[in-house]
């Protein structure tokens, strides 16, 4: 069973980009390994080298900076839950809290989650809501892509084999906003999402109407995506249960779920509008809560 793969634990950034430059797709990057190790055991991967990056310094921090909040490539789900800057962002923190169990969250990285590009990657909807940008580096050059251009398909990204993702930046959160993450699974813990939804609402305090709306859905199509029909319906309106229900139904546009062992296509389509409506209602509550504190 054991494939004769070489394991290289890198200790510097240069070592990683040099090795990627030399080996290209023969190298498989491994951070927490919670996806890679299972795919290896199942024979879905057969790299020559496992290029381990957990020891590379400088990639493990959450830092506020120019253009927003930067999450380094080694930021784990556990850190997203506990860091004061990210735990305030429910669309991310509540997603991180529901990735597998503690053992998964302790070492599984946010960047690994997006690069693995599962249709059910739980962090992707929240990152889409926050206009996440993905930073890639290779020897001698770097580039940045919006997350919605980075994820290309099921297990497919725009990353070149020579590139390391160094981190993600999320845009500053507007004032008067509230956000939420809703995951539908068969039980509360250790579940792959049947449907995942992240939403964010900005409510204009002077008019009480929705100034900006973000709805992103996962596990209902090969790529987690924003739901523009829902968003357009919400903007300019007053937040009400009826409006949220209508926006939920509008999210069916663009949804093309599969039947699998976890749920049928029919169930996913039935539950999606309700999950969206629930996420919107929680987002709206969070706007109100933030206002009453202020």
């Amino acid at each position: 069973m054991q494939s004769p793969v070489r394991f290289h634990s890198a200790t510097t950034f240069e070592e990683v980009v040099d090795a990627l430059d030399e080996l290209g797709s023969e190298a498989r990057l491994i951070a927490g390994g919670t996806d890679v190790m299972i795919q290896l055991a199942r024979g879905e991967l057969s790299p020559q080298v496992l290029l381990h990056i957990e020891r590379v310094p400088g990639l493990g921090t959450v830092a506020a900076g120019e253009g927003g909040l930067h999450l380094g490539a080694l930021v784990t789900h556990a850190m997203v839950r506990s860091d004061p800057a990210t735990c305030a962002l429910a669309a991310l923190a509540d997603a991180a809290r529901q990735v597998g169990g503690w053992q998964t969250q302790a070492i599984g990285t946010v960047v690994g989650n997006i690069v693995n590009a599962s249709p059910a990657a739980d962090l992707t909807p929240g990152l889409l809501v926050h206009d996440a940008m993905v930073h890639l580096s290779r020897r001698g050059s770097e580039r940045t892509l919006p997350l919605d251009q980075f994820v290309k398909g099921r297990r497919e990204t725009a990353r070149e084999p020579q590139e390391l993702v160094t981190g993600i930046t999320i845009a500053p959160t507007p004032e008067h906003s509230g956000e939420a993450f809703v995951k539908v699974g068969r039980r509360k813990a250790m579940e792959v999402s049947i449907v995942a939804v992240a939403t964010r609402l900005v409510v204009d305090p002077s008019t009480g109407t929705i100034a900006d709306a973000r709805v992103a859905v996962g596990a209902v199509s090969p790529i987690p995506h924003r739901a523009p029909a829902s968003e357009q319906l919400l903007i300019g309106q007053r937040p009400t249960a009826d409006l949220f229900a209508a926006a939920g139904r509008a999210a069916l546009e663009g949804a093309d779920p599969i039947d699998d062992v976890r749920a049928s296509r029919r169930y996913r389509l039935a539950v999606l509008p309700r999950a969206v409506a629930q996420a919107l209602s929680r987002s709206s509550d969070h706007v109100d809560a933030a206002r009453s504190v202020a």
Binding site: S9, M37, I38, G101, Q103, T104, A106, I107
Partner: peptide
């Protein structure tokens, strides 16, 4: 597959599933 936790050990004080963690790390 990291689902059941029966193999949980601590690596640098963090709980991990030893069945999906490489020794070489």
């Amino acid at each position: 597959e990291g689902e059941c936790g029966a193999c949980t050990v601590l690596v640098d004080d963090r709980p991990i599933d030893a069945c999906i963690y490489p020794t070489a790390a």
